[in-house]
Design a binder for these strands. Sequence first.
DNA 1: GGAGCTTCAATTTTT
DNA 2: TTGAAGCTCC
Length: 777
Amino acid sequence: MSYLDELNQSQRAAVENIYGPTMVIAGAGSGKTRVLTYRIAYMMEQGIDPYNILALTFTNKAAKEMQERIAKIGASGAMGYYGASEAKHLTMGTFHSVFSRVLRFNAERIGYPINFTIYDTQDSKSLLKDIIKELKLDDKVYKPSMVLNRISAAKNNLISADEYLANDEILAEDRMARRPELARIFKAYSERCFKAGAMDFDDLLYKMYVLLRDFPDVLGYYQQKFQYILVDEYQDTNFAQYTIVKMLAAAYENICVVGDDAQSIYSFRGANIQNIFNFKVDYPDFKLFKLEQNYRSTKNIVDAANSVIARNVDQIKKEVWTENGEGQLLNVIRTLTDNEEGKQIVNRLYDIKTQEGAEYSDFAILYRTNKQSRSFEEALRKMNIPYKIYGGISFYQRKEIKDLLAYFRLTSNHRDEEAFKRVINYPKRGIGKTTIETIVIASTNYGIPIWDLITNFQQYPVQINNSARLKIEEFATMIKSFAAQLDKLNAYELGQHIAKSSGILKELYDEKEKGPEEVERYQNIEALIGGLKEFTDSKEEVDEFASLSEFMLDVALLTDADTTDADDKNYVSLMTIHSSKGLEFPHVFLVGLEENLFPSQMALQSRTETEEERRLFYVAVTRAMKSCTLSYAATRFQWGSVTSSESSRFIDEIDAKFLHHEAPQRGQGRSLSSGMSVGRGFGGTGNGLNKSLNTPTPSPHSISQRNLKPLSSAGDGDKSTTTEYKVGYNVLHERFGKGKITKLEGQGPDKKATIFFPHHGAKTLLLRFANLTVVEE
DNA sequence: GGAGCTTCAATTTTT
DNA sequence: TTGAAGCTCC
């Protein structure tokens, strides 16, 4: 019983209330994971069979952590009859991975092959691009990423392509937005995925719903199996996830959801914060537990975060507090350039490390967008500080890895269209773009999978030349020969065989001479094969056959954060705020706090969007245990030119008594007199010394009003980004010089102007990027 | 069919 | 600045 004594009163109450609908609102740092894991341990101790427990998380990382912590409690002998070894019967994982397993098990019910492929975002976009082209639509109007977002939103709201096509309201909406063909694209996309035996990320949710909806016996089976359901990060569930959980829980209503409305940051992916607010409607007799004591951060950090989040209208009232000491104030650092920001933050980091004898792993640098990592990487490298960047391109998304995986995919699912397109001519075997296009279109016209076409040219004649046809047939024969080995060779043997016979290994080996990047590619392939070996060994240890198909099951669902850590964990972590959720660090640097970057300019359209950015800020600050440093740069170098920016509103929103504005360092504080070219003259000031040469310093905000871009500063206090432009205005463009606006079109961020420049002719430019200055005649 | 060059456009977060 | 797409020439 001892482990229960480690809990405070509300935590313990939440742990012990294992029957009936339960909602736990867990403030940042309040021991949420502890409650979840102890609850599961407690259930098992009470005699509940782990086989009947389902725990759903959003990330593999969270699932893994829970698994480990439960095993630890089990090892302490606290779980009674169902000990640690039984814990492996728990069903625990991300929505996507748990559902994908259920779907494979029941695949034939909904017409899919057991070894269906999971398309990642890249695959989906590539397929959409093809479809848009085949439908002869303008890919400027129908951008694959935009179309995918739209389709994704539909599926997350459980709307199928056919329902979309039949819904007048949606169709009218699309017509209004001048994208009337979206429905047709959606329909074609669904058909093509189905034909290819492929599901995209959203299908894993949508098809799960269809399975439970259309097959009562399946629903009944899983209701009986999952008598106890736990959902982590409930605030991030979308409508599809919400509905599925509700269906599964309907028989027993032993459902426990844990979340924090203040940390809902995934609405762009369809997450609906209302699911938390509606819990009481769905389960009127639910029990609510609030975890409000923060064990993580200093008082200053907790209170600073609270002072910001208090500005949100949408929230559940709660009081996060801490018994921890006051700690230091939050430092605010302003620098002139993004490179300078990198240097100063890293210097600061090094200072803290030396002063406190901290480890590198005690530090995290958090930013809004992945691309911001660059300046910090450079600075860290220069100082020889070990670091690791999370997110960005994951191992499994690297070109060479995807190429080899495409062979694996094609081997276990011949119909996989995206895998086919990827490797039919890689390594080069003389099958050109025209040929591939012809085949893809022909297969659509015949209404059959590409594979069926290329293995039955007699039955389905296609207009391609003979040599190409022979080469394609050769390719198909090769894939078939791989498939024939699926049951005979283990994943490692077959994987290696494919890497060799496909020619990929040789191709990459030959390119190794070219440079370090090519060497890395080759090493990545070796690493993947190493992964196959590891997988095979671990299976064979328990006397199971390790098939390549099985290895492929989860690969599409793995992300960078899931690749196992190197032995040496002592490095500084760099990541987006999104991926920092659920983590904590003694020292946090929250960088790039500038208007239009954070909050992102994409998120300023509405109150709800701005509130989400504010929650994101809240998440970031509450990652910090001991110290939190905020920084922003007055200018930023992006896509070839320098832009200036103002400090983020979120800095102003923190109650000033928790802040300490750092005195500018050397080279800082010179105000940018108007007319001076920003961005030149500052880059080269660093000569290794950090102090001296203090010039008079303006207050942190004084620069912004005088900046060089009329477009982005519309006067005191007004942080809007739009300046009024009218047809007939004379404007100045950086490159094209003076011109006259002849036409305006588009709305919001898409607003474009056609401008006639005497020396360059008429140009149509996105106002957002054009960087125009209105000038007098 | 494919390599190499030129042009053009581009900003978020991730399972 | 980066990356993708289009175009030219072998």
